[in-house]
């Protein structure tokens, strides 16, 4: 059992170990990329290679901090919500095909399952904000809920375009359907909507309203001390990794690429490009207001998503050979 391929995939790659290490490395990469954009240096001292061990040093620091659970808070949900968020992020990565056969759960409804699992995340944020018995976390939790109503439907409808093109919801078969051409070309509009709404789903700038450290003091994370703060921050990076891998899988041809390098290389390098793109959005755009996000999600993004479905319908039914 210890050497069975599925067990190795779950504990090593693409499973738990690699998720934890990649999540920590993404934290370092984000600080480095943001620093480079802002003409700073960023983490430097935690290793000879440009502070690449900075997040591990932070982990050790946070592990020794005192755990303060605020008075009159619901301690069970206060601790449960961020740790469940970590499990959700890991479950997302398990659905992604990283190479032929290198996929933990190859299920028929892979794409809707991914989006359905991520739907739980704003609920957990609301739970965390409510249980802390403090005002800023509660406002942050409510904002997460409003934000979900703005991006959820365009996100699902932009994924629907891919399903219409591929005729399947299985992620491995969606990759196989792109052997004649990546879906980002016929689905350019859908890919754009998917990118914007997934950034909103990850609660990253310019849509980080539930955290919004300059308005509501990190929002739902305000009361989290030490290790729990790490557990609250961690899912963000794991979700960034999982969503970039999903974007690569359904729009950029997944692990397909010239055969002189292994499929895993193509998958990971395309994922890295998408990750850096999303990180650059963070340092480029200012934060939107909640009513701007709601209006944009319900008018612009939803209209574009419906137009995209119309284009896809014409492509699939009008040009069946494509």
């Amino acid at each position: 059992m210890i050497t069975s391929p599925l067990f190795l995939q779950i504990v090593l790659f693409p499973g738990l170990t690699s998720i934890a290490i990649i999540g920590a490395l993404l934290g370092w990469l984000e600080r480095k990329v943001t620093a480079r954009v802002q003409l700073r240096i960023g983490p430097l001292y935690a290793s000879p290679a440009g502070g690449i061990l900075q997040m591990f040093a932070d982990l050790i620091k946070l592990a020794f901090k005192e755990l303060i659970v605020p008075e009159n808070s619901d301690a069970f949900f206060f601790i449960m919500a961020p740790t469940t968020g970590l499990v959700l992020g890991a479950a997302l990565v398990g659905l992604i095909p990283f190479a032929p056969g290198l996929q933990i759960a190859n299920i028929e409804v892979g794409l809707p399952a991914f989006l359905a699992i991520i739907t739980l995340s704003p609920t957990l944020i609301l739970l965390a904000g409510w249980s802390a018995n403090s005002k800023f976390p509660f406002i942050g939790g409510l904002r997460a809920l409003f934000q979900q109503t703005a991006y959820e439907i365009p996100l699902w409808l932009s994924a629907l375009g891919v399903i219409m093109m591929a005729g399947t919801m299985n992620l491995a078969q969606i990759v196989a359907a792109q052997s004649t051409g990546w879906f980002i070309i016929p689905q350019a509009l859908g890919a754009l909507i998917f990118l914007v709404t997934s950034v909103a789903e990850m609660e990253r700038l310019p849509f980080d309203l539930p955290e919004a450290e300059s308005e509501i003091m990190m929002g739902w994370q305000a009361e989290y001390p030490g290790v729990l703060f790490l557990a609250a921050q961690g899912p963000g990076f794991v979700k960034l990794y999982a969503f970039s891998a999903l974007f690569t899988t359904i729009f950029l041809g997944g692990f397909l690429g010239p055969s002189f390098l292994p499929p895993l290389f193509w998958m990971l390098s395309k994922t890295l490009i998408v990750i850096v793109l999303i990180m650059l959005l963070r340092s480029t755009f200012p934060r939107v207001r909640l009513d701007q996000l709601l209006r944009a999600g319900w008018t612009t993004l939803l209209t574009l998503a419906i137009i995209n479905i119309g284009i896809t319908y014409i492509l699939v039914v009008g040009l069946p050979t494509l």
Binding site: P70, W130, N133, K135, I139, F146, T149, A150, E223, W298
Partner: peptide, 29 residues
């Protein structure tokens, strides 16, 4: 163990009644 309110002493209970704005969007959702 007091709730954090930007350095001020926390005023009132943490779980007060908030006005749920943007209600039409929620119904549409």
């Amino acid at each position: 163990k007091k709730p954090f309110e930007s350095g001020q002493i926390a005023a009132g209970p943490g779980r007060t009644r908030f006005i749920i704005q943007y209600y039409p969007y929620l119904l549409m959702f």
